[in-house]
Design a protein around this nucleic acid. Structure first.
Lengths: 241, 241
DNA sequence: CGGCAAATTGACACATCTCAAAGCCTGTGG
DNA sequence: CCACAGGCTTTGAGATGTGTCAATTTGCCG
């Protein structure tokens, strides 16, 4: 049980890792950090020399507009290597902030480059995480563009359920969503008020139980059906990549 | 002037290419294709063994929902290497279709892998294009979530202007946007009718001229200001990546 | 117990959707 | 060269979804 366990679990769900690759990952040096709701892990405009890996809680990529509005463009759960982007893009065009309390570790870019040079297969798996992020963003774009508030929320819950389950953070059909409704609103591009109505509406269907931060999915099939959710884009099948 | 000229131009805007790297790219074998509006370059559910590079016109990543609705999650212009994603994700979770008429060439995955193995720097530049796609998607998510129709459209025009200019497809401050309003609607998550109203509204500001498929940006500064556009995310500065 | 952030509700304003119809291009066949 | 068909653009009117503002309730923590 190390800080990299979740990351290894997330990769292992998608391809077979050899012992040597596992060792290379475990050999990465890391510096730990602990954050409270809203605290920034990576600031917009900065030029990071490390990438961060979420170890507990959740973090979000956030873009701020004029007039104090903001949009969350991605949610990251434990095991997600956030910010490999900064390896290539250099200057951050957005910030990464904690959603609820969260912990993360930071790994220097040169060490990432080193282990990908030693194992081309690992290099591909790091690129896979980039491509996977992009696939999730496409699903979000689709929800934002073509689904109403309730369906959007249902789709998001399905996605998070699968993503939490991969890293062992579900208990049966429930998981902990330590997120404020106002943060959810920034994910779905809605007002806080309307987000609350969407939550209410979803509860009324009976498909989902939601008490405090505890979300229980009573009927995943129907929830997926009402939001046109198909887990294909999460690439949860082991393939040789 | 080869089929790879635009791609090389797009990379050269972001980093310096050595002659050897240029030669490696030019050495790639390719198969050409020509498509009419709506024709699919890559089908959802397929398992591509090639990646495609747009050489003229535009293509779009498209996700279909029930009830015939669709959402375009990305627009690709000449010089864009679409579908590097399929190198990692294996099964397509969306399709790539022509917007207006378009031509593209297809490059076998093994050849891409080969030249990235020969040049780690090229490998990083290929990853850069993945990361850049993701940055653009973040901007789209922000537009979908937090901007009204007119501002969304203005932001999109700014983006496309910069992207076309990099590959030499602008004439002064104008460019050819051979796209149907119904396709634009699928980009912005709006109805065709409302998209038309947004176009009308933008014309009324006088910041943009739009006759047929010819778009002329009369005042880029104001257009950027009204849509909170900042080209940072397009990474148009040469850096060592 | 008191204080504060978060969740919830109601009423009304505004953005966007749907449906329906009319006008406008462009390619094609006669 | 003209007439027509079909797709695209444009407009109007009424329905629906979502935003805003303001107030109340709930839940947590000191």
């Amino acid at each position: 049980m190390t800080v990299f366990s979740s990351f290894i679990a997330a990769l292992s769900a998608r391809d077979t890792l050899e012992d040597r690759e596992r060792d290379l990952i475990e050999s990465l040096p890391s510096r730990a950090g602990r954050y409270r709701r809203g605290e920034e892990l990576v600031a917009e405009g900065s030029r990071p020399t490390e990438s961060c890996l979420i170890t507990s809680g959740m973090a979000a990529r956030t873009i701020y507009l004029m007039e104090g509005q903001r949009q969350i463009t991605a949610i990251h759960v434990p095991g997600d290597f956030v910010d490999l982007h900064s390896l290539y893009l250099k200057t951050m065009d957005h910030s990464v902030a904690a959603l609820g309390a969260c912990t993360a570790v930071f790994v220097p870019h040169p060490d990432i480059v080193r282990i990908t040079a030693e194992s081309p297969h690992l290099a591909r798996l790091f690129s896979l995480t980039l491509a996977l992020d992009a696939a999730i963003q496409r699903a979000w774009i689709t929800s934002l563009g073509r689904r109403g508030a309730a369906a959007h929320l249902a789709h998001l819950l399905c996605e998070l359920f699968y993503r939490f389950r991969v890293v062992g953070l579900t208990a049966g059909s429930s998981f902990d969503l330590a997120v404020t409704q106002s943060e959810l609103a920034d994910v779905m591009g809605l007002s806080t008020v309307h987000t609350n109505r969407a939550v209410k509406q979803l509860r009324a269907t009976g498909l989902v139980g939601w008490v405090g931060s505890r979300v229980t999915i009573h009927d995943l099939g129907s929830l997926a059906a009402m939001s046109d959710f198909d887990p294909l884009y999460l690439n949860l099948r082991k393939e040789h990549r």
